[in-house]
Nucleic acid binder design. Sequence first.
DNA 1: GTGGTCTAGACCACC
DNA 2: GTGGTCTAGACCACG
Lengths: 129, 129, 129, 129
Amino acid sequence: MFLRIDPDNGLAIYDQVVRQMKFAIAGEALKPGDLVPSVRELARDLAINPNTVSRAYLQLQHDGVLETVRGLGLSVSAGAAKRCRAEGGKLIRERLAQVFDEARLSHLDPDDLRKMVSTELESALKRKD
Amino acid sequence: MFLRIDPDNGLAIYDQVVRQMKFAIAGEALKPGDLVPSVRELARDLAINPNTVSRAYLQLQHDGVLETVRGLGLSVSAGAAKRCRAEGGKLIRERLAQVFDEARLSHLDPDDLRKMVSTELESALKRKD
Amino acid sequence: MFLRIDPDNGLAIYDQVVRQMKFAIAGEALKPGDLVPSVRELARDLAINPNTVSRAYLQLQHDGVLETVRGLGLSVSAGAAKRCRAEGGKLIRERLAQVFDEARLSHLDPDDLRKMVSTELESALKRKD
Amino acid sequence: MFLRIDPDNGLAIYDQVVRQMKFAIAGEALKPGDLVPSVRELARDLAINPNTVSRAYLQLQHDGVLETVRGLGLSVSAGAAKRCRAEGGKLIRERLAQVFDEARLSHLDPDDLRKMVSTELESALKRKD
DNA sequence: GTGGTCTAGACCACC
DNA sequence: GTGGTCTAGACCACG
């Protein structure tokens, strides 16, 4: 599965699902018309409650990214790819800004901070699980 | 005041207070023996609830960073500077790791991501409010 | 076909089929002894699932409106016309009461509401599709 | 309380809450800045589950009608009155159209239908509970 | 099997 | 006290 949730992320679980689903669509891991995993299946895979998945899917419908196909499930809506590509970068930039804003308040030496950021980024990029 | 809270940070408000207080001590804006602002004063300055400040101070006492001075208030404890310096970088590194971990899942091109991170970091470092 | 289903009606699809079938019998579009469309045919015509039609027909049998004719299908039962005429008005009155009850809570001016109702009614009566 | 829910309405309970809350705001029973009843209080009053109220309030926030006031509750947002007045009539007209559309299919004599509608409407308007 | 809705009850952060 | 989030489990309509 293309989603990975981290309970200590600071973000609510349903929000992580929403964001990563948008990432997946922006990155074309999911294409318009594709059915997303069923509520129950995704809940089982991520070891979270179906209701939490349901809430994430509700949000995604509300955002115009998913739409119901009666009796079949939920599919990626037509305009979703474009919308998600536009939004994807913004979601990440917002979070980066928040974290860097906090980091700024630590009064670390800017160069130390740059090094720390770079180190963590590269180590995250290497992690391929 | 040296603290700045952001309700949409993802972190609980009391946690932001705790972290930034530790940063302030690590950066010697507050030195051992200094009295920290009273619960009411800080609450007023940050426009948050005194109860929230209270919880943050409780946490800081529990972490051995603050200690009560009877009749005077709370002061930065003796060993706090060292402890906070050690902890400061870790707090930030952890959050960086979380965010980069999410960013990795966006399947952005690594170079685009590096650029985005660098842009946001520099823009945060410039912000001096 | 004399049936028209609207997925956003508030009523379950099978219920819409049941009700409109009764209307058709009350209005003598279907007479006792007539064979109703087969489950598959009706499902195809209305673009709904055969299972849903099946459930509607089951309900209609249970209500004494349809009866099986072995090897042929389902036919309108003898007493159905009378029963449906009696029931038809009631079904509509009940729904009207529900909707007007909600409308009442909107605190619209009664005269405005009367006008709105009248306008919508006439416009519905004109629609002949 | 200004809300009245009917489980057999055809509409989901949370949807009835959403609609009637909008009606209440349109009719100025609730004004911008007012706090709406707490999730728990409304749930108790309507004898429904707090989660169901929560869901309705979530929808209303999403529709820009309510906004959270941290630790205090939910308040009617500034632009809500105007938005709700605009939407109120539409919500009712839509439902009327659905019901009349069904009524049309009953092939009742139009004059009989008009009389029936008028009777039900007046009887609903008289009901003052 | 699917999603939609509802209930019941829990913990958390915040006022 | 408040809302926000999560879990657990139920029933229904639909395919």
